[in-house]
C-alpha cells in the first residue's frame, strides 16, 4: 500500500509562547510535530506493518522542518519529503498549502493519505479535506478507528463524542483524532537510522508552481495572546448573603443571568 502522511511542524503550546509585532517569536518557541499528526504517523506505520507497502511523510516548511521529518522516520516511516517554501513563499494559507500538496500528489498514486485532525497552531482543519476534494478522492475527518481489507476501509469517526461507523473505498484521505492510537516513542536505534533514510527536498519550482499560483485567499489581520485569567473572587459573610451577592453579580456584573 502506498501510504502518505501530511505532517506539520508547530510550536509547542505547552511551552511559553511570545507574540511580538503580531508574530509568534520563533526564537523562543519549541517546535514539535503537530500532536494530531503523530496519530497519523503512528497509524500509517501500523497499516504498513499490517498490509505492506511504504510510508512517506510530507511536510511543507523550512529547513528546520527536517527535525520533525527525521522524528517521523525514527518512529518508522520509510521516506520523507520536505517541500521547502522558505525562500519562495512570503505568506501562505490553507489554500496555498492544499494547492502545493495537490500538485505534489498529482502523479503519486496514493492509496491512503493520513493527516492530523487539526494543527494546534491555527487549528483550521482544512488542508486534509481541501486536498482530498482537489484530488477527487473520498475523505473522512476525525477518525478514531481504521481497519482496511482489500480496497475498503472500515472507519470509526468521532462525532461530538459519539461514534459514527463508515465504510469507504480506497483511495482515501483521513484526518486523525485523539483516541485513534497511542503514538510510539521513536526508538534510539530508530533515531540513528533515520539519518540514513531518504529525505527529499523540493521547492515549489520543482512542482512547476510559482508564488502567484499560491497567493493566499485569506489575510491574517492580527495575532494576539489570550487575556490573562483574572484571579477569582471569594465572597464572604453568611451563606444567605453570599448567595444574594453571587446572584446579583452574575446578573449585573457578568450579565449571564
Amino acid at each position: 500500500m502506498n501510504i502518505y502522511v501530511l505532517l506539520k511542524k508547530t510550536f509547542d503550546t505547552e511551552e511559553k509562547i511570545v507574540v511580538s509585532n503580531g508574530q509568534i517569536e520563533d526564537d523562543s518557541a519549541e517546535f514539535i510535530i503537530n500532536p494530531y499528526d503523530e496519530y497519523a504517523v503512528e497509524e500509517a506505520i501500523k497499516q504498513r506493518d499490517e498490509h505492506g507497502g511504504e510510508v512517506t511523510v510530507v511536510t511543507i516548511g523550512d529547513e528546520d522542518s527536517e527535525k520533525q521529518l527525521r522524528t517521523a522516520l525514527a518512529m518508522g516511516a520509510d521516506k520523507a519529503v520536505l517541500i521547502n517554501t522558505e525562500d519562495d513563499l512570503e505568506d501562505g494559507d490553507q489554500f496555498s498549502t492544499a494547492k502545493i500538496l495537490e500538485t505534489y500528489f498529482e502523479d503519486k498514486d496514493a492509496d491512503l493519505i493520513l493527516a492530523g485532525n487539526v494543527a494546534i497552531d491555527e487549528a483550521s482543519g482544512q488542508v486534509g479535506p481541501r486536498l482530498a476534494t482537489r484530488l477527487g478522492i473520498s475523505y473522512v475527518t476525525t477518525i478514531t478507528g481504521l481497519t482496511i481489507s482489500g480496497d475498503t476501509a472500515q472507519i470509526e469517526k468521532d462525532v461530538e463524542g459519539d461514534v459514527e461507523k463508515i465504510e469507504c473505498p480506497l483511495p482515501l484521505l483521513v484526518t486523525c483524532q485523539q483516541g485513534l492510537n497511542e503514538p510510539r516513542y521513536p526508538s534510539l536505534p530508530g533515531i540513528m537510522k533515520a539519518k540514513k533514510k531518504p529525505l527529499a527536498e523540493l521547492e515549489i519550482d520543482d512542482l512547476d508552481l510559482d508564488e502567484d499560483d499560491l497567493e493566499p485567499k485569506t489575510k491574517t489581520l492580527e495575532i494576539f495572546m489570550p487575556q490573562e485569567k483574572q484571579a477569582g473572587r471569594v465572597l464572604e459573610g453568611e451563606p444567605d448573603a453570599q448567595v444574594k451577592e453571587l446572584v446579583s453579580l452574575l446578573k449585573n456584573e457578568a450579565k449571564v443571568l
Binding site: 527535525k67 525514527a74 533515531i191 533515520a194
Partner: peptide, 8 residues
C-alpha cells in the same frame, strides 16, 4: 540526532 535523543 542528539537533539532528537534529548526530545525523545
Amino acid at each position: 540526532e542528539q537533539q532528537m535523543v534529548r526530545k525523545m
